Simulated assay, not measured.
Amino acid sequence: MTLELEVLDESAMQALGGQLGEALGWRGSIWLEGDLGAGKTTFSRGLIRAAGHVGAVKSPTFTLVEPYSLATGDIYHFDLYRLADPEELEFLGIRDYFTENSLCLVEWPDKGAGILPSPDLQITIATQGSGRRLHISAGSSAGQTACKRLQGEA
């Protein structure tokens, strides 16, 4: 199942992040793809704040992962942009983050090819005028359910 959405501004992108986090039940994995500045971190910020985080949500560009322990569960926000080799994820203990009780957001997932597990949702963000166009693909039954929930079908 795939969805095509238009997002007009930053607040709409953050709201969509929250809606998709809730639609997934705050569990699973979301891959975020797009050029620098496309809105991957903005989407993540909205999701993390909707899950209950109060305060700054920074991009984990230099730390690779930022953990958030919230009432909804654990959320791990990855930014793999600076990753030189996917094997580095093994040293990070990547498999320990992807559990049935966590939600993992992964920016630049192509940098972890061959190591990362398949996503529940894969989101590609492209600039469209002053807004963004999102292509959302479900990669699992949980992802399909989330897409249906987002459309108001489930």
Rank of each mutant, 00 (worst) to 15 (best):
M1N: 06
T2F: 05
L5W: 10
E6S: 08
V7P: 02
V7G: 00
D9I: 04
E10M: 10
S11E: 14
S11V: 07
A15I: 08
L16F: 01
L16M: 09
G17H: 05
G18F: 09
Q19V: 06
E22G: 01
A23T: 09
L24V: 10
L24W: 07
G25L: 10
W26N: 12
W26L: 09
R27N: 02
R27A: 01
G28M: 13
G28P: 11
S29Q: 12
I30Y: 08
I30C: 01
W31V: 02
W31N: 12
W31I: 03
W31P: 03
L32G: 04
E33G: 06
E33H: 14
D35K: 03
L36E: 07
G37C: 11
G39R: 00
G39Q: 00
K40L: 02
K40M: 10
T42W: 05
S44L: 12
S44A: 15
R45T: 11
G46N: 05
L47W: 00
I48D: 03
A50E: 09
G55C: 03
K58N: 10
T61H: 11
L64I: 15
L64D: 01
V65S: 03
V65C: 02
P67Y: 15
Y68Q: 05
S69D: 15
A71Y: 00
G73Y: 02
D74F: 15
I75A: 04
Y76S: 11
Y76N: 12
H77F: 07
F78T: 03
F78Y: 13
D79Q: 12
D79F: 12
R82I: 07
R82V: 02
R82M: 03
L83E: 00
L83A: 07
A84M: 15
A84G: 14
A84I: 14
A84Q: 15
D85Q: 13
D85W: 09
P86T: 04
E88A: 11
E88P: 13
L89A: 03
E90C: 10
E90W: 11
F91Q: 11
L92M: 01
G93L: 05
G93K: 00
D96P: 07
D96F: 08
F98N: 01
F98M: 05
F98G: 07
T99K: 11
T99C: 05
E100Q: 14
N101I: 12
N101Y: 14
C104S: 12
C104W: 04
L105M: 11
V106F: 06
V106S: 03
E107I: 06
E107S: 05
W108L: 00
P109V: 08
G112A: 03
A113R: 13
A113L: 14
S118D: 15
D120Q: 06
D120T: 05
D120F: 10
L121D: 04
Q122D: 12
Q122A: 13
Q122P: 05
T124E: 11
I125E: 00
I125P: 04
A126K: 15
A126W: 14
Q128E: 15
G129A: 10
S130K: 13
G131E: 04
R133P: 02
L134C: 01
I136A: 01
I136L: 13
S137C: 11
S137Y: 05
A138S: 10
G139M: 09
G139R: 08
S140H: 07
S140T: 06
S141H: 08
S141Q: 08
A142Y: 01
G143D: 13
T145V: 00
T145L: 02
L150F: 07
L150Y: 10
L150R: 03
L150C: 07
Q151V: 08
G152P: 00
G152Y: 03
E153R: 14
E153D: 08
